[in-house]
Design a protein around this nucleic acid. Structure first.
Lengths: 223, 223, 223, 223
DNA sequence: AATGAATGAGTCTTCATTCAT
DNA sequence: GATGAATGAAGACTCATTCAT
């Protein structure tokens, strides 16, 4: 979907090969293969990074997985670092878009938090590679986490914080605590569920714990 | 305190030099010197790993910081990996020992959770290097996180889980949720506070948020 | 003007397109376009090589400067090496043609040497790119210098040597030295003036030193 | 002669290996081999650069020639570039020291110029590798030539210029020409002799042409 | 035990060249 | 002929680890 030397998410544009060819039958398996070379590399990178970790991952591994030459990757991405960064951005944006869309049709703040938790865990629970990267690699070092955190995580916290604030305004939630802190507790709890799920053979399926986590966050431990 | 090529926390054992010298005072001073060197390397490793991240950290950096030759590190640690692992183990054991000690004199399960949260945040809040490593490096890759998680984190979760179970048994906590999940929510929430504290200029001091976090976990958001 | 894979200055030949079109005016315009493209690439190569040096110069740089695709260059030149070689040959031949023409109308050997020095310095002084390449790149390695030297420089030395020999025969020049050595001294002196001019902010304009240099070569330092 | 990580011509200092060993017999072939590892690398670099040219030369070639591992070179030199730069500086300084020493005992300016020409040609004529590098690589690009020229060549030109000025002051040399230009003619003439000697099978031995060149520079072509 | 010079395996990245369109 | 995306070989440099002293 992206032509070399002008990577970073462009508007839809035909691949070089399909320049002026509008024949629908032509754009079959082969043309399709060309069109998403960018996507193939990105997917391969996610898979390899998840398997081996960013540092242990070799560009040649990614290339092989994506069925391209190593040099080709550099037509689409400036560096190995950018490959990880872009992959995470794309993934996170997809998640946020989905989350925002689904939350619009949800009712009370409490219901919104339940729904978001489900989406959060389903999102990472449905793609182990993704989960590994976001739990492991993304927070690997300030190099990645800090910039990513500032720009992307802030969105997530803002989303949750707004819901919490809304809950306080509407009277359903207790006043007296900072929405920002609540948002972080909420995220931290869910995040830890993902981490545990990755590292252990959990007795519970990941998607099922959303209710339990939200119950604790909403109701607390004490009766 | 550690003989070359057999690192991994050994019991006290006289230095090679004392073998033939046998002078007790001599041996004491020398053993002390050995112990110091081992400790110096470990401290230097924590500092350097925190500053640069595990991958960017150089063994020679650690050696310089510890005022030893690079080769000397390999007399005490098998590899760079082991250096990180041992450092984290030592730190975590110190934390757990302190936590268990302080919790013995605490009363109700709720009070125990409040107290543990304070210790948790004070521990990491008082040593930024430590916090950086445990938040960033330790969970960097399955290579480190997995073994550490199995052995060390399990202790933490067991500690919290036991308190929660105790709370449920004593009637103060709601039944109907798994103590394991509660423990992870608890840890995840605190963990995220540390991460946020590291990445942002927080408007709140780290040690102060313990109450807020425990409030949410104990009481929930809903009034 | 050059067919793919058979570069090295060919005689005029219609473009492939004119083969089947045959329209004379068309063919003329088209051939002109071809000739221009060849020239554009050569000019671009000289400029880029001068700016960045042969090794740092990228074929893609030359292509961009010439407003052609990178692959197109290989229709006109076999390799990057050939591009430099052909560029230098063309330039040198232009210089030699001009020199021979202007010297025909000049009188005594001494006057010829004065006139040639002027042409030499004007030629390189009027095109810094050219000077940079001939001083720096061309003598970069035996790979380029040796073949060039054998074929091209020999002409220059022969020209000067003949003038010197003529001067000796006619009695104006001292006998007792080899014209070949004199020719090299003459060239070396001028060459060094160009080099100095390129590397320094000279207090004298390049074209002005021709007289001084020739004075020294003709009269010597001693009075 | 230089310990790693503190390269660039240090004062004589025993190699790490010979720390406190003062036994004269010990410092035989083996100790000698250690001591001039720095020198071995430098010599190997000169040879390889001369053979293949700077760009075509491989660090691994130099390492093999010097009988060290590739990585060892980087203990003594920061980069491939520095290797060339240091080599040239060392060589040039050796030449200048020799030249200044020998010229002190020489008489008139004319005699000094004759003597310097002999030294110049002998120096490069006695080591073809050296000559190749100084004629080819050194003037390869502004990157090397410019800095080197400014600092090193300026010394050469100053030396010659001073002699010429002295000749003018003492009345032996014609006034009316700039000593700077004369110095460049002198150098350029000699330089070209070296280049020719390298590129051709000259009919004259390099050291023999010194007289002829100086004759021309001093007496001129005209009788 | 301590040293630190030496090692050399390991890899990202570049870029001349090719070739399918 | 022209294009430019794709190729993949090639190489400088790093750094954990070793080992002779």
């Amino acid at each position: 979907m992206n032509a070399p030397k002008s990577s970073k998410r462009q508007t839809k544009k035909s691949t070089p090969r399909s320049k002026s060819i509008a024949a629908s039958t032509e754009s079959g398996a082969s043309a399709q293969a060309e069109r998403d070379k960018y996507k193939r590399i990105l997917d391969a990178a996610v898979a390899i990074f998840a398997e081996k970790g960013f540092n242990a991952a070799r560009i040649s591994d990614v290339a092989t997985r994506a069925s391209v030459a190593a040099g080709t990757i550099y037509l689409y991405f400036k560096s190995k670092d950018e490959l990880l960064t872009v992959a995470m951005q794309a993934i996170f944006e997809g998640f946020m878009a989905r989350a925002r869309a689904e939350l619009q049709s949800t009712g009370t703040p409490a219901e919104k938090l339940r729904q978001l938790a489900r989406i959060h865990l389903e999102h990472l629970g449905s793609n182990r590679d993704l989960a590994v990267i976001s739990q492991m690699e993304l927070r690997h070092s300030a190099r990645f986490l800090a910039p990513f955190s500032r720009q992307q995580m802030a969105e997530y916290f803002a989303l949750v914080g707004d819901i919490v604030r809304q809950g306080q305004d509407q009277g359903g939630f207790r006043p007296g605590f900072l929405p920002e802190i609540a948002a972080k507790c909420y995220f931290g709890a869910l995040d830890e569920m993902v981490t545990s799920w990755l590292l252990n053979q959990p007795v519970y399926p990941l998607s099922d714990v959303a209710e339990s986590v939200v119950d604790i966050i909403l109701l607390g431990l004490e009766s």
